[in-house]
Simulated assay, not measured.
Amino acid sequence: MKIAMIVPALANKGPIIVAKDLCEEYIMKGHDCIVYYFDNVKDLAFPCPSKRISFFSSIDFESFDIIHTHTFRPDCYVWYHRHLKKTGAKFVSTLHQPLTLKALLLTKKKIEALIYFFISKKSHQMIDMNIVLSQEQYNLSIINLRKKSVEIIPNGRNIVFSEIGSMKDKEELLTLKNKYKIIGSTAAVIPLKGLEQIIKALVYLPEYVFVSIGEGESFLSLKQLSERLNVSNRCCWLGYRPDASNYQIYFDVFVISSRSEGFPLAFIEASAFGTPTVLSDIPILRAIATDEIVCFYQLDNISSLCEQIKDSYRNRISFSRKLRDYYRQCLTAETMANNYLKLYENLIKK
């Protein structure tokens, strides 16, 4: 098959990482891939040709069997250009977040969210097949999509286990690990990720330290919160690291405290490393894991978060083994790619 991926940029962000992992798998299986992108950001090296394009310049859709888009702008690009020309190519879009107004309002102002929601609905209704990442995302999004044009394919990743690149970080983490148990996060430092809950929990967890790998708009307010609560000496803000997944080997407990999610790649990475994991008890995360392999806490209930962190650490050997098994069985990039290829083949036959 000839497959075109369209992404906003070659940035080191979840949806683009998914596209990269898919391309790697497709090429190993003998398919031809090319990646098109808009912004001049090149954090990731794709294993196939990549080409920067303008939103208003159409690629040759007819040259491909499958056009696969990721995120809002690429979806709009297809919507805009598909109006202008007919093609035999099939169009696939992966929705990395639920297609709901409520989800958009978590990150955008009302007018902006309404505009995004209207355009997203229109663009996805023209797609031949929309991919959601879990049953819960399907349940939330289906009212805004054509029912026959939606399938569920969970994310997957092939994790390469290697040492972190920064010796300074390594020394700092080893020093912390000699004194504390480490609660880790590799989330963006933004309100949606709910990291303030972890800082509040530190007040009641004197034997723990919080290590954040990420950057974002909430950094200053979270730092100030840690100072007000007198836990700033147990908060380590390392910032953005391109090899964030490799920091998992230093974490005793990994926490995803999000208020909304799609299918977090960080959870896949923690599973691959076997890091005991605590998730916020929101439906979208309940749809990707069970109490058998992770601990769930009640969102914004700090007592619940503290108890689940302690329980996760107390049963760390059992949780670690079960998470690794779950990763190998369900969460590899090869499993994800095989599911997509089967879907592509069925679309082409129609």
Rank of each mutant, 00 (worst) to 15 (best):
M1R: 02
M1K: 01
A4K: 07
I6H: 09
I6M: 05
A9S: 15
A9K: 12
A9E: 13
N12E: 11
G14P: 02
G14D: 09
P15E: 02
A19D: 02
K20P: 02
E24C: 08
I27T: 08
K29Y: 03
G30I: 13
V35D: 03
Y36M: 08
Y36W: 08
Y37E: 07
D39R: 13
D43K: 02
P47N: 06
C48Q: 03
K51M: 11
K51C: 13
F56S: 12
D65K: 10
I66H: 09
T71V: 09
F72P: 07
F72K: 00
W79H: 14
L84Q: 14
L84N: 06
V92K: 11
V92G: 05
T94V: 01
L95Y: 01
H96N: 08
Q97A: 15
P98Q: 04
T100V: 06
K109R: 13
E112D: 12
A113T: 07
I119L: 13
S120L: 11
K121C: 12
K122W: 04
M129V: 03
V132D: 06
S141I: 04
I143C: 04
I143Y: 10
I143G: 02
I143E: 12
K148D: 15
K148C: 04
V150M: 08
I152C: 02
I153S: 10
F161A: 00
F161C: 05
S162R: 10
S162Y: 13
E163D: 15
K170F: 04
E171G: 06
K179Q: 10
I182D: 15
V189A: 00
P191C: 09
E196N: 15
Q197F: 01
Q197M: 11
I199M: 06
K200P: 01
V203K: 15
Y204M: 13
L205E: 02
E207D: 14
E215V: 01
E215M: 07
G216E: 07
L225I: 07
E227V: 12
L229P: 02
L229T: 02
G239R: 03
Y240E: 06
A244W: 03
Y247R: 04
I249Q: 15
F254T: 00
V255R: 00
V255G: 03
E261M: 02
P264H: 03
P264R: 04
L265I: 10
A266V: 13
F273Y: 15
F273K: 01
G274D: 07
G274I: 03
S280F: 01
D281V: 05
I282W: 07
P283S: 12
R286K: 15
I288S: 03
Y297E: 05
D300E: 15
I302T: 11
I302Q: 12
E307G: 09
K310G: 00
K322A: 12
Y327V: 12
Q329V: 09
L331H: 08
T332D: 10
T332V: 00
T335I: 11
T335A: 09
N339V: 06
N339A: 13
Y340V: 05
E345F: 02
E345Y: 00
N346S: 14
N346K: 14
I348R: 11
K350V: 07
